[in-house]
């Protein structure tokens, strides 16, 4: 695979940008900045994909990530203390191990990449990649594509169910308490009854032993 000089220059720029912004994600105190540094890293990778003539995948990656990272920034503001970086913060655990793991994985992967002899069969540099991908998506790989769609739909339903306030039997905070078996029994009674049983169970077993 050989590329022209301008493409090489652009590649170096985007690659450096993608790596540097990926690093900055974990080096900033502001949640919104962290999310948008990550977005910048994705844009860098997306741009490299466009250079590789995988236009559609690269652009879709960028398109998707704008929404995803904004949600991420938003969720961070919702759930994380200190969203604006008023206080400096470094919230990490097993820091040294993590650094070691990161560096090791980089070395191993890079080494493998350099030492392995991959087949050399570059893609023909035409602008038909998008069209071929479309034919593939709705032709041979339709099953995969549809599975992905179904998986996403299932995930959405599941995610809403998990996140929503109402569980299957009522408010999530009160736990999912099953309804009573008798129609006139109070819910609270049923749950109190069951808790009692749960607590008594071990001692009953203990008595038998």
């Amino acid at each position: 695979m050989s590329t022209s000089a301008p493409v090489d220059v652009l590649f170096v720029l985007f690659a450096a940008g993608a790596i540097a912004t990926a690093y900055l994600v974990f080096r900033t105190d502001s949640m919104v900045r962290a999310a948008y540094w990550l977005l910048a890293s994705f844009v860098g990778v997306g741009a490299i994909l466009v250079l590789l003539k995988a236009e559609f995948v690269g652009l879709v990656l960028m398109l998707m990530m704008a929404g995803e990272m904004t949600i991420m920034a938003f969720v961070m503001v919702m759930f994380m203390m200190n969203p604006a970086g008023l206080n400096p913060m470094l919230m990490v655990h097993q820091h040294k191990t993590a650094i070691a793991a990161g560096v090791t994985s980089f070395l191993v992967l890079a080494g493998a990449a350099l030492l392995t002899d991959f087949p050399n069969a570059p893609a023909t540099q035409t602008s038909r990649a998008t069209e071929e991908l479309g034919t593939e998506l709705l032709g041979e790989s339709m099953l995969v594509f549809e599975t992905a769609g179904a998986a996403l739909l299932g995930t959405m339903v599941g995610a809403v169910a998990v996140a929503s306030r109402r569980g299957r039997y009522g408010d999530a905070e009160e736990g999912s308490i099953e309804p009573p078996l008798q129609p006139d029994e109070e819910w609270a009674q049923a749950s109190a009854h069951r808790t009692e049983e749960d607590e008594h169970e071990p001692s009953v077993h203990g008595g038998h032993s």
């Binding site: 993608a18 790596i19 990926a22 994600v25 974990f26 890293s41 993590a98 990161g102 994985s105």
Partner: peptide
């Protein structure tokens, strides 16, 4: 690999 390493660290 570099991006993967940073991600793993995070």
């Amino acid at each position: 690999a570099a991006i993967f390493g940073i991600g793993l660290y995070g």
